[in-house]
Structure formats: C-alpha cells, structure tokens
Amino acid sequence: MEQQQETVLAFKGLTRRFGGVVALNEFDMELTNGQIVGLIGPNGSGKTTSFNVLTGIYEANGGSIEFLGQDITSWPAQKVYEAGVARTFQRSRLCLELSIFDNIMIGAHKRLNHGFMFNVFKRKALQQQIKENYDEARKLLTIFDPELADKMFEPVGSLRMIDRRRIEICRALISHPRLLLLDEPSAGMTHEETRELMDDILEVREMIDGLSIILVEHEMGMIERVTDKCIVLNFGQKICEGAYREVASNKLVQEAYLGGE
C-alpha cells in the first residue's frame, strides 16, 4: 500500500516563458506511483511545453521538477530518459527512412551496449544482443498489432499514421519507463482505433511495474475512461484539478473551453 503512495513526479511553481508568452505559469502538480493523469486544456495552454520542459528539451525559467526523489530540473534530455521518463511527440517524430525495428531500438538505447570494441569486433555477442532485443520488440509490437510485427524490417515511412503512432508508443515502452508521457496519441484516429490503442497501452501497463502515465488528449471519452485524475491548463496556468467528473462540471473549465475570457 505504501508503494502506491510513492510520489513519482512533482512540479513546483514550474514556469517557462517564450519571449512575452508565458507558456507555463507557476505550475504545480504531483503524480504517484501507477497513476494515470489526464492533462487537458485548450490549444496553446502549455501541455506540450510541460512535456518539453520535463524531458529537458527546454529549460525551466523558474520552479523545480522532482522525479523519484531527485531534482531533475536542469537535467539534459539524455539523463531524464536514463532516469526512466519516455515520451511520444504530438507531431510523430519517428525516423521515417529507418525500419520499424530500428525505430523501436532507439527507445531501447539505455540497455544496449554502445562500446566501439563491442560493436565493431565482438560481432557474435552483438548479434546475440540484436536477436534478444528483436524478440522483445516483436512481443511488444504484437500486443498493439500482430500484423505490424510481421513488418519489422520495413521502413516506417511506408506505414499509415495510426501505425506510426503505435510504433512511437512501442519505442517509448521498450525502455520500461517509470513515467510515460503521451502527447495526443490518438490524433487523427477514429473512436474505435482510439479505444483499441488505449486498451493496448493499459495492457502493457500491467506488465511494467509501477508505470505512471501523463496523457494529453482531446478525446474526453478516453480521458474519462482511463485517468485517475485530471489537470486542466489554461494560458499556462493550472485552473482545476480532480477526478474527471468534478473537472468537467467546473465552471472555469467550461469557460476555458468555450474560449471565454
């Protein structure tokens, strides 16, 4: 039970400005072990920016980020990943000319051996590592789509958008992260496809110990179904936090979505 309450992530007064625009304004939030948090808000309210600051793409202008008890506020992206944060991008960022397998293996970076001697001279050991990782990648991808798993050596650029999103999620999950950041994973999908995708993610969550998720999503049905709590941003500020039902009936939230000032 105690395990359940462990704080995985905490923002304290997190602030990020772009010139005159305050993209994140004194943002506080907390996420505990195994929790799924929905991050919602109108376009331009700072959702993606919070991911970018958390993963070290942008520096914070103020405030702090704590992850698993460590202050990671000014860590570079590589270190944040090593610590156990994996993400997808709102505009899918796969390497289109590389194969599915290559793309997923980029996500497995932290447990591959990158030594020069190992890679160039210990070919047998390297090939062993390649095959082991292939098996795992294939297993993971099979959960999302068995047909895709048969196309491991085809270029990602030849696939449909929805398949690319699945691969991007696999790339994130293969690293066995403690925290998964999903930035509008269902953009461009039908209701049915969105549902399937979320079921698959939940299935994988069972396999990874204590995986927490922050989900940015416009599809409110999905938010209602899977999140433990929701946080609403507007102009970079948190305007409401709580279970989906509370949040949905909040007056401020309704105004924000209707575009009222």
Binding site: Q78, Y81, L94, L98, R171
Partner: peptide, 18 residues
C-alpha cells in the same frame, strides 16, 4: 543506428538517451 538517429532527428534522439 545512433549515427542515423543523430542525422534524422537530434531532438528525438536526445529524448532517447543518445
């Protein structure tokens, strides 16, 4: 693979520890 990832998308590569 790391070389390719660096060439194709530095930001994504950095987010995966490269």
């Amino acid at each position: 693979l790391n070389f390719d990832a660096v060439r194709l998308d530095e930001t994504a590569a950095a987010c995966y520890g490269i």
